[in-house]
Structure formats: C-alpha cells, structure tokens
Amino acid sequence: MPALAHTTRAIARSWTAHQLPVARASCAALQTRSLSEVSSTSSFDSPFKGDGKSTKIPSFAAYRNKAGGETGPRVFSYFMVGTMGALASLGAKATVQDFLVNMAASADVLAQAKVEVDLAAIPEGKNVIIKWRGKPVFIRHRTESEIKEAEDTKWESLRDPQPDSDRRQKPEWLVMVGVCTHLGCVPIGEAGDFGGWFCPCHGSHYDISGRIRKGPAPLNLEVPAYDFPEEGTVVIG
C-alpha cells in the first residue's frame, strides 16, 4: 500500500515537472506569436501555426458608419432600445394591472354594496334596521331631547371617548352598523340603562349615540360610510 502511494506521488510530481515548462512556453507563444520559441521548447509541432508573418487585418469599411461621428448612431440605438423598454414596461404594467383588477370585487357585488333608504318613512323616535352587505344597519330618527342628551354627555371620560358630532352627519339621523363590538351579536334598540341599545348576549349597554357605556364591549358601535345625496334619502356604502 505505502509503495503504491509513493509511486503515485512520484508520477504526479514528474508529470507536473514535465508539463509546466511547456505550458509556460505555449503561453508565451500566444502572447508573442513567435514561431521559433514554440518549436524550440515544444516537442509537438502544430501544422496550423502559419508562416509567422504578421496578420493582415481585413477591411471593415463596408460596415462603417458613412456619416462619420459616433453620437448620432449611438443616440439612435439608445433610442431604439429605450423605446423597446418603454413599450415592454407598458405591456408588463397592463398585464399586472389586469391580474390585480381581477381580484377586485365583481360588478354584482359592487352593485349591492350601496343601499338607498327612504328617510321619509321613518317617524321621529323610531329605529329602522336594514340589511347592508349582510350586516344590519340601524337608522335612528332621534328626537330633540335625545339629540340634547347625546350631545351633553361627558364623552371625555367614556371607555371609547367620542363626541356625538363625530358620529353623525345630521343630528337627527344616527346611522350605525348594528353589530355589537364585543362578540358580534345584534343589539336590541330602545333598551338598556342609557336609553340606547342593549346587547342581549353579554349585556353591553350603548347610549343614544351608540357609544359603549357599560358591559364587556370595548368600542362604540361602528358608523358606516353614508351620505345624503338629496333631502329625504340616505345612501349607505
């Protein structure tokens, strides 16, 4: 075994010792194109190395730019490449945009996303519950005394402090999503200790502005986006 290893090593050493000068010589030959050096150091004569005279460079005049000057053609080729980049980015943008638009709500969902309610049918002091995007929405036509009560409450000390003016667009119309902020039950109107809403599931009391006053719920009843496009109607959504 050791003898075999020894011979192998010896062969390797002799091989490198023998090869290296040749490799160096061929390198030199590539650099200098000198024939004599190759033939003197190498044991192998290439039949393809030519007669050693200097290379004649062929003429590229046919391909040269006739007008002279580099800037014109350079600007032109940059223009072509740039235009291709611009058009390709347009196409890429359109493709990505179409895929993203694909994820948006479809037309039939969007068509049901808005609900129009006729306010003339709601007498003063009454609640109306309508369905909007699968959730109940409370619309309360508040009386003068209720508005006064809602505005006079000391809201700074409440659990979720919010003045009444932040919770309605017109004082007499209170529009809220009728989902208890605790665990999502639907509160009962005109009930509870504060004259507003009362959640029967876990006993949360909301006042006449829909603010949480007592019970486990952490937040006031949510106010959806709505507006009054004309007198007597409200559009929720």
């Binding site: 740039g82 980049g85 611009a86 980015s89 347009l90 943008k93």
Partner: peptide
C-alpha cells in the same frame, strides 16, 4: 437618467 427617461416616456406613451 436613461431609466427615468424610459419610464416617464412610457407613462406619456400610455
């Protein structure tokens, strides 16, 4: 600047 030009002109082109 060339990249910026390309993207701005893509916007205008669109």
């Amino acid at each position: 600047t060339m990249l910026a030009t390309v993207f701005v002109s893509a916007f205008g082109l669109q």
